[in-house]
């Protein structure tokens, strides 16, 4: 049922939309090379790079659209790309 005035009561419900399927290139983050400058974290338009339980940055491929901004902005080339197998 459509809510009154189509109001959306669930904040951040866009998480249901897994944009990872949009990718043609997959960024791969090498934790060993990462110096935690936070560039990839702050510039990702999807907020798809978050810290894991060990405090390492990790890419959430459910949402990563493969724009490769993170790769472009990594000062130590810790992020590389591979073509997505479809």
């Amino acid at each position: 049922m459509v809510t009154i005035a189509a109001i959306i009561y669930e904040p951040g419900s866009s998480i249901k939309n897994k944009t990872g399927t949009w990718r043609t290139f997959r960024p791969i983050l090498d934790t060993n090379k990462c110096v935690k400058c936070e560039n990839c974290y702050i510039f990702c338009p999807e907020g798809a790079i978050q810290e894991d339980e060990n405090g390492n940055f990790k890419i959430d491929y459910d949402y990563c659209k493969g724009c490769l901004i993170c790769m472009n902005e990594c000062p130590v080339n810790a992020i590389t790309k591979v073509r997505e197998e479809k």
Partner: peptide, 18 residues
Amino acid sequence: ITQGPVGVPDCYMETRKQ
């Protein structure tokens, strides 16, 4: 809450009917 979202074809008619 989000008020005034995009009324996609899947919900627009229902809102008018309401």
